[in-house]
Nucleic acid binder design. Structure first.
Lengths: 153, 153
DNA sequence: CAGTGCTCTGACCTTCTTTGACCTTTTGTC
DNA sequence: GACAAAAGGTCAAAGAAGGTCAGAGCACTG
């Protein structure tokens, strides 16, 4: 229960609660030093505890003056989250389901007309990918990313 | 917190905003002195932050009375879109270029903040495609589709 | 006690930044 | 015109992050 990873998770979530702007910036190496572990352990924590599905968005920049930014998604959209999760169960999603889903989002005024059209264009463009499995998997993956992003802004 | 390069970028953009003529003239050595760095660092900033894709044009003159002139391009929406489309005509496009273009579309108020974020998420998700060539080609293909959609709505 | 699924580490990779040595162009002076 | 001085330009290498991945360790569970 109180593994290094869990402690780091708790610590980061506390920082997030205390943050006024809805996100926190951290230095991978410093955080690792604070918890006396290797830097890659930080990645592990981010990958397992701060995923899109759990309501977080992680951005980063490499190189000098790099950083990790953890953003907490708006809780009010929890309903939408579970909807998405249900639909995109195994990562894959069919073209029809994806389009139905976008239509629902538009009908429910969660996305604008232009946003809807844009996503339709993206879905259209997927035909460029010939491999059926890759296409379906990528569609699910991408949809998840886009929808979670829409939720957080 | 932020890097020298980012600070210099911010500074130059502020100067540009304040300029009435649409361009600014600077002395490489003086700017370097102001930021306490080597002169070639100025070139780095210009090469990475003030590119054509990002909507800037840099002219210069060497020798005595030399200077650097940074010009902000002020192209119309149609021009910007056709520029982008032209660029993608060869099919492929790099991730960086695609992101630069999206940023410009946002800066030029051709797309909303949410639409910008959405497209960034789509670009992020492309990493799911492992094949380098397929990814770059698909990126170009998709971008074209989306841009054409934007034009028509 | 073998299997399964988290944790954790370390070696190696990629990206972005910064510096410095050396090069080229332009201007001013004899 | 030759030469010196005054810019700016190029490029490779070092430094400063963060990213990836395979495998070792560990803790339950049947």
């Amino acid at each position: 229960m109180s593994s290094l990873a869990s402690n780091m998770e708790t610590y980061l979530k506390k920082l997030l609660r205390l943050s006024a702007v809805g996100y926190i910036d951290i230095k991978r190496k410093e955080l690792a030093a604070k918890f006396k572990c290797v830097p890659s352990q930080v990645n592990y924590v981010l990958e397992t505890r701060f995923t899109l599905e759990k309501g977080y968005l992680v951005e980063s920049k490499r190189g000098g003056k790099g950083y990790l930014r953890i953003r907490q998604l708006d809780v009010s959209s929890e309903e939408l989250l579970s909807m998405i999760l249900e639909e995109i169960i195994e990562g894959q999603i069919t073209d029809n389901k994806a389009r139905d889903f976008m239509q629902r989002l538009f009908d429910g005024r969660l996305i604008s007309f232009r946003e809807w059209r844009m996503m339709e264009a993206v879905l259209d463009s997927l035909n460029y990918i010939e491999d059926d499995t890759l296409r379906a998997e990528f569609r699910g993956w991408m949809l998840k990313k886009v929808l979670f992003t829409l939720i957080s802004f």
